[in-house]
């Protein structure tokens, strides 16, 4: 584990990605203390101010401070994507492990359902679920999780199938351990690293999907600040105030890039084919 971490940190791209993510997480956590203004405070006299002066990143069409809204918006991006991936890991992982462990018709049936889920474009599936359930924080988490369950089921299933034939699992069975105990105490720790690498890469996707849904108008409702929603507002004022669309767009890009860099680094460090090099 230590060697693995050392390898991850030795890669400058991973290190940079981790720094980016850390900075954004800190900004989100500290938002109430470091944001110069209340994100919903309107200052109609200073609407559409360009960056600089009292408003370092400018103001939007209602005179709200962009920097403060960006800081608060980071909370939504991180909460929704973390929540969605956590749900997808737990549900998808459990489904995959059960399918791999039980096998037979159950496996066939469950994986067929997963394949069908995979055949919907994920953004379209998310779009429909949020639109039908109604856009709020919980439903966003549910919708994004739903698009990610099938891939996690797949990634958990394959190693479970291989592990259940191994001697230590058979020994457990011979000792009379219950199936849940074998699954969660003995198989789970062995597939954790693969699932976690996948989770880090899917975090990036989740952030992107949340931002996309907010951009379409299906995110957490205004006046709550979301990066996707801010980009949408900026897009509507693009002729007068291009920074309104550029700044939140850059924020999303930096977070997704940071997560992808970390995910890539983790994957390279755990991939046995790359390990020999």
């Amino acid at each position: 584990m230590k060697a693995l971490l050392a390898k991850v940190w030795a890669n400058p791209m991973t290190f940079l990605g981790a720094l980016l993510c850390l900075a954004i997480v800190l900004a989100a956590v500290l938002a109430p203390w470091i944001a110069p203004y209340d994100p919903a405070d309107q200052d109609i006299i200073s609407r559409l101010q360009p960056p600089g002066g009292a408003y370092p990143f400018g103001t939007d069409q209602f005179g709200r401070d962009i920097l403060s809204r960006l800081l608060w918006g980071a909370r939504i991006s991180l909460t929704v994507s973390l929540g969605a991936i956590a749900v997808a890991v737990v549900i998808g992982g459990t489904i995959g492990m059960l399918a791999g462990y039980i096998g037979g018709t159950f496996d066939l049936l469950v994986m067929q359902v997963m394949d069908v889920l995979l055949s919907f474009p994920s953004l379209i599936l998310g779009l429909i679920v949020v639109a039908l359930l109604g856009p709020d924080l919980i439903n966003l988490v549910v919708a994004i999780a739903l698009t990610a369950i099938a891939p996690f089921a797949r990634v958990a299933r394959a190693p479970t199938m291989a592990l259940k034939e191994r001697a230590f699992v058979e020994a457990g069975r011979a000792l009379g351990f219950s199936h849940p105990r074998i699954l969660f105490r003995h198989i789970l720790p062995n597939i954790m690293s693969e699932v976690m690498v996948m989770a880090s890469l899917w975090m990036a996707t989740a952030v992107r999907v949340e931002a996309s849904l907010s951009f379409i108008g299906l995110g957490v409702k205004p006046p709550t600040a979301t990066w996707g929603g801010m980009t949408r507002d900026g897009f509507e004022n693009i002729l007068d105030a291009p920074w309104l669309a550029i700044l939140p767009g850059l924020a999303i890009l930096l977070l997704v890039l940071g997560l992808n860099m970390v995910g890539d680094g983790l994957r390279d460090a755990t991939d046995p084919r790359l390990r020999q090099e």
């Binding site: 951009f215 996707g228 900026g234 890009l253 992808n260 890539d264």
Partner: peptide
């Protein structure tokens, strides 16, 4: 890596 991190609406707007 940067290319695939761009949400489509952000690159579109840019």
């Amino acid at each position: 890596l940067i290319g695939l991190s761009f949400p489509v609406f952000v690159s579109g707007v840019f």
